[in-house]
Amino acid sequence: MKQRYNWFDALNAVLLTGVVIACLYPFVYMLAVSVSGAGPIAEGKVWLFPKEFNLDMYRYVFQDGRIVSGYKNTLIYVTLGTATCLLVTSLGAYSLSKRNMILNKTFLLMVVFTMFFNGGMIPTYLVVRELGLVNTIGAMILPGAVATWNLLIMVTFFRGIPQELEESGKLDGLSEMGILFRIVLPLSKPVLATIGLYYAVGIWNGFLGPLLYLRDHELYPLQLHLRNIVLAGELTSSEGPIGGEITIVENALKYAAIMVSTLPILLVYPFIQKYFVKGAMIGSVKG
């Protein structure tokens, strides 16, 4: 059938182009400003393409020890955290997916209840404190080791694996562990990738956790340093009068700091976004 385009298609195209621009332009603009010279920025000439291209701001950002140490910490927390979360969540989800396991209903109810009611910020902080985790790497990994939503996505996925596969494994003499590690987990690579990415992005972007549990600047992840640099304006070069030229340069420096910490996500995002979406779909089936 021949498709006819009417006024609605035109309007729709305009609206959706607007959405695309709204989502992309801030990053394009920040990138352009961060690599432009101070003159054109001050005159407001940088809109889309960099003017007087230079990488000075990036040099400053990397000279500032905070970004480098924050990067290192964030990478450590993301790696260890994602591994821990994935292990605990997938093992737990496997058990929960077995409907006739003893106490299965009780455990599932116990897990779901925490989605609707929790202890709140202060009691959680006190628990972490009692455990002696404040100001340790442990505080970045353990309090978020299982996200209930992710756990339920995995349970749904595991329940979708045909029972015949597991039973054939059992007939061939595989133990319970053997079935999990040789049949179920290899079949679950997509969901493992999805949930792993959720956890990794969560830890990478996390702000409240480190704000509550870390005191020592040496342990600060990227986000805390970023907040101090971008929002609290604690720049190494901020001595002297505020306003005019200095503010302009400061802005470019802040944009560079933002780009440095967002670039990894922006660069890998197009390749991994299908995994994110897959997770959201499995989650939505559960409703």
Partner: peptide
Amino acid sequence: LLLLFLPCLLYYLIFKYGPIFG
């Protein structure tokens, strides 16, 4: 299966039900 669930159970008891008790 219970052994596999143990870390998860401990997590919920300590970090979710601990604060609720708190």
